[in-house]
Amino acid sequence: MAERHSSFVPGGTAWFLQRVTAAFLIVVLAMHFFLLHFVNHAYAVTLDDTVARMENVGYFLTMVLFLWAGAFHGINGVYNALVNQGLSGTPKKVVLAVLTLAGLALVAQGTYVALVMAGWM
């Protein structure tokens, strides 16, 4: 039988957050598709409509959490996939630093755009 190898420590914080963000992303992605592809077709979505939705605090918070959860889930998943493929030593530290900086930049820019669209900046 093949040996199971994972960089995740079962029950660890990264393992737990990967699963929590996955569940959250599934629910919010379903809501996103329903709202923006079935209720309002993509061609009919305008900047004014987006601004109006972002002015709703609940929608704003959901979208910002969607951004943060997606960024964490994706970056953590890529990093752990690379570790599972044998990444170690200095290259592992460099990849972690680059992914962390890219993730922070993505979250900062996305949050800024959301705040501007909500009219809070």
Rank of each mutant, 00 (worst) to 15 (best):
residue 52 A to D: 05
residue 52 A to W: 00
residue 52 A to M: 05
residue 53 R to M: 04
residue 53 R to D: 05
residue 54 M to I: 01
residue 54 M to Q: 03
residue 55 E to D: 05
residue 55 E to C: 03
residue 55 E to L: 01
residue 56 N to H: 06
residue 56 N to W: 00
residue 56 N to C: 02
residue 56 N to T: 03
residue 56 N to G: 03
residue 56 N to V: 07
residue 56 N to P: 07
residue 56 N to I: 04
residue 57 V to N: 02
residue 57 V to D: 05
residue 57 V to C: 01
residue 58 G to K: 00
residue 58 G to D: 04
residue 59 Y to T: 00
residue 60 F to I: 00
residue 60 F to W: 06
residue 61 L to V: 03
residue 61 L to S: 07
residue 61 L to P: 03
residue 61 L to K: 02
residue 63 M to T: 02
residue 63 M to P: 00
residue 63 M to I: 03
residue 64 V to L: 08
residue 65 L to M: 09
residue 66 F to I: 00
residue 66 F to G: 01
residue 66 F to Q: 00
residue 67 L to F: 02
residue 67 L to Y: 01
residue 67 L to C: 05
residue 67 L to W: 00
residue 67 L to Q: 00
residue 68 W to I: 11
residue 69 A to Q: 03
residue 69 A to S: 15
residue 69 A to E: 05
residue 70 G to V: 00
residue 70 G to D: 01
residue 71 A to C: 13
residue 71 A to I: 11
residue 72 F to V: 06
residue 72 F to C: 09
residue 72 F to I: 05
residue 72 F to Y: 15
residue 73 H to R: 08
residue 73 H to M: 09
residue 73 H to L: 08
residue 75 I to S: 07
residue 75 I to A: 08
residue 75 I to C: 06
residue 76 N to D: 14
residue 76 N to P: 07
residue 76 N to F: 04
residue 77 G to P: 12
residue 77 G to F: 07
residue 78 V to M: 10
residue 78 V to G: 02
residue 78 V to F: 11
residue 79 Y to M: 13
residue 80 N to Y: 12
residue 80 N to A: 07
residue 80 N to T: 06
residue 80 N to D: 09
residue 80 N to G: 08
residue 80 N to I: 03
residue 81 A to R: 13
residue 81 A to S: 15
residue 84 N to C: 13
residue 84 N to I: 05
residue 85 Q to C: 12
residue 86 G to Q: 10
residue 86 G to R: 08
residue 87 L to Q: 11
residue 88 S to Q: 14
residue 88 S to T: 13
residue 88 S to C: 12
residue 88 S to M: 15
residue 89 G to Y: 09
residue 91 P to N: 07
residue 93 K to Q: 14
residue 93 K to N: 10
residue 94 V to R: 15
residue 94 V to N: 13
residue 94 V to Y: 08
residue 94 V to A: 15
residue 95 V to Y: 05
residue 95 V to S: 09
residue 95 V to K: 06
residue 96 L to G: 10
residue 97 A to L: 15
residue 98 V to C: 11
residue 98 V to W: 07
residue 98 V to E: 12
residue 99 L to C: 14
residue 100 T to K: 11
residue 100 T to R: 12
residue 100 T to W: 10
residue 101 L to M: 15
residue 101 L to K: 12
residue 104 L to E: 14
residue 105 A to G: 13
residue 105 A to V: 15
residue 105 A to W: 10
residue 106 L to H: 08
residue 106 L to T: 15
residue 107 V to C: 14
residue 107 V to Q: 04
residue 108 A to L: 12
residue 109 Q to H: 10
residue 110 G to Q: 03
residue 110 G to E: 03
residue 111 T to G: 11
residue 111 T to M: 04
residue 111 T to Q: 03
residue 112 Y to N: 13
residue 112 Y to V: 06
residue 113 V to N: 09
residue 113 V to C: 08
residue 113 V to H: 07
residue 113 V to Y: 07
residue 114 A to G: 06
residue 114 A to S: 11
residue 115 L to A: 13
residue 115 L to R: 04
residue 115 L to C: 14
residue 115 L to F: 11
residue 115 L to N: 09
residue 116 V to L: 12
residue 116 V to E: 08
residue 117 M to K: 06
residue 118 A to V: 04
residue 119 G to T: 01
residue 119 G to F: 02
residue 120 W to T: 05
residue 120 W to R: 15
residue 120 W to I: 10
residue 120 W to C: 06
residue 121 M to E: 06
